[in-house]
Simulated scan of single mutants.
Amino acid sequence: MSISERHEIILNKLKETGKVNVQELSDELSVSEVTIRKDLRLLEDKNLLFRTHGGATLSNPYTSDRPVSEKAKVQAQEKEAIAKEAVKLIGDKDSIILASGTTVSALAREVYSQNNLTVITSSLDVSLTLSGRENIDITQLGGQLRPSSNSVVGPYAEDFLNNITCGILFLGVDGVDLEYGLTTTNLMEASLNQKFIEIAQYTVVLADHTKFGKRGFGRICTIDSIQHIITDSGTSQSIIQELEKKGIRVTVADLL
């Protein structure tokens, strides 16, 4: 088989499924994985695909940092539905971490408490949302302000967490890749999120369907570092099944 024939097969598979896998292509085309990787590199140079870890996709898998005001308008219904599912996990007298992100901010709008609830957050939006509500004690982390997310990052925030343990972490992300893991667009934010995961007993990721198959600049953790993902009905069943095979609980929120 010629190189042009291989490239035609690869591009046709991409059009059919949206992504290809190096190992599967190697087996199907009876060539080495090294050869397939070279093929993918050549096709990427021609702007015909985007290479990913272990394969390639037809759409750009990399996310860019956008202002929080812009992000809040995207998939707003999905985020609200996810938030209404997430709030069911919070009990009175719990201690929780609400990280940054517009889906986490949507969750904050749903949080009320009859008894004392302790909230630790890096998000200014979350603190402002919860500040007037009874029976909620808020610890706002300090540090370097990220205007694009209205949240803080940096060593000051991380050092504060050294003597803290917490029940549930609710984490927003910019990308969920089943092989590469969870990512965000900012390295310092990724580092703080790693610290959150370290001190939390249970980590819940809030991610609408557009986050799957995407990658941000900063890697937070591998998929097996979390326990639970709440998403919406736009997420494909194959992705949900793969997550469940890895032992991750998946909750699918119905759109309102």
Score class of each variant (00 low, 15 high):
P147F: 03
P147Q: 08
P147C: 07
P147Y: 10
S148Y: 14
S148K: 13
S149T: 12
S149D: 07
S149G: 05
N150W: 03
N150I: 09
S151Y: 04
S151A: 15
S151M: 09
V152H: 06
V153Y: 09
G154L: 10
G154T: 08
P155V: 08
P155H: 06
P155G: 11
P155K: 07
Y156L: 07
Y156N: 07
A157Y: 00
A157W: 00
E158H: 01
E158P: 00
E158G: 00
E158I: 03
D159K: 12
D159R: 09
D159I: 11
D159M: 08
D159C: 11
D159F: 04
F160L: 06
F160D: 00
F160K: 04
N162M: 02
N162R: 05
N162H: 09
N162A: 01
N163E: 06
N163V: 07
N163Q: 12
I164G: 00
I164H: 01
I164N: 00
I164C: 04
I164V: 12
I164M: 01
I164T: 04
I164E: 03
T165N: 14
T165P: 02
C166V: 13
C166S: 07
C166F: 01
C166P: 02
G167W: 07
G167V: 03
G167D: 13
I168M: 12
I168S: 14
I168R: 14
L169P: 04
L169F: 05
L169M: 10
L169V: 13
F170Y: 09
F170S: 03
F170D: 00
L171S: 11
L171W: 07
L171H: 04
G172Y: 08
V173N: 11
D174K: 15
D174W: 15
D174A: 10
D174F: 14
V176I: 12
V176P: 05
D177W: 06
D177V: 07
L178A: 02
L178F: 04
L178K: 13
E179T: 15
E179F: 15
E179L: 15
Y180E: 15
G181I: 10
G181V: 04
L182M: 12
L182Q: 06
L182Y: 07
L182H: 10
L182C: 11
T183V: 02
T183H: 11
T183M: 10
T184E: 14
T184D: 13
T184N: 13
T185R: 12
T185K: 04
T185Y: 03
N186H: 15
N186Q: 15
N186G: 08
N186T: 13
L187V: 13
L187H: 10
L187W: 06
M188G: 11
M188Y: 14
E189L: 06
E189A: 05
E189T: 08
A190T: 07
A190S: 04
S191P: 10
S191T: 15
L192K: 00
L192E: 08
L192D: 06
L192V: 14
N193Y: 05
N193F: 03
N193I: 02
Q194T: 10
Q194S: 11
K195Q: 09
K195Y: 07
K195L: 02
F196S: 01
F196H: 05
F196C: 03
F196K: 01
F196W: 01
F196V: 04
F196D: 01
